[in-house]
Design a protein around this nucleic acid. Sequence first.
DNA 1: AGCCAGGCCCATT
DNA 2: AATGGGCATGGC
Length: 272
Amino acid sequence: MKEEYIIVDDLSSFDIRQILDCGQIFRYAKTGEGEYVVFSGSKRLSVKQDGEKAVICGDREFARRFFDLERDYGAIKERLSGLPLMKESIAYGSGIRILNNDPFEMIISFIISANNHIPRIKGIIERLCNDLGEDMGGYHAFPAAQALAQKDENYYFAQGAGYRAPYLASTARAIAEGKFDIDSVREMPTPQAQKYLTSLAGVGPKVADCILLFGYHRTDVFPVDTWIKKVYRDLIGEGATSAQMRKRLIDTYKDLAGYAQQYLFFAKRDNG
DNA sequence: AGCCAGGCCCATT
DNA sequence: AATGGGCATGGC
């Protein structure tokens, strides 16, 4: 297999550390200073970044889409910078990009993420991949729905999924049996897509928004988690429910809400 | 040691 | 429609 790579020489909107650490992906590892390996579905990419450029090794066409390289993040940040709360968080996470990750992987991963710690989420997902994912020669793919559907909730308990175990078994089965059609989500307006996704066990409003944002690049959503609640309380005030926060934040940032959410989330969680 | 984590489900009101 | 208790696990 020939060695393919992409060079990103404009780093004004590309920082691999920020892209990976902003909470949108769980399968990656730091392999050195400015060096990372990243997994999505059955793919593996490696990235080396210094002060001048980033080099992405792996399937070029896949990488271009995965890292959302066609999109003008300068223009997005320019538009957002005039809106409330944005200036400082954009300055802090100026190299963030929203990945185009695999929808099924996002569904399973964010079910596991509910009320959980990121290091533990990573561990559970890694165990599932090693155990049930196709051996790609040196690493394992994310497991197919059919592989996950063959396991029952006892298995997921044993992998450390806790009370999410039955959700994983149920959702994997629904998808493997074709009762839930992952591709049909693409055709749905966002509210309908959210409603459809929440029909899956373990998927509520927040997890659905994460799936839509990271798996379908639907940016008119705003996942409200504990970190966003902290931001909201600090900057706006007490008393609002998650649904009220979500509505107000989408009203504020509109079609760019998903981007705004990542800048706010990362600045709060990474920087405090 | 106890609090908390990228919340959801379900019973109750 | 809205609210609140319960929940497995392990990092800190």
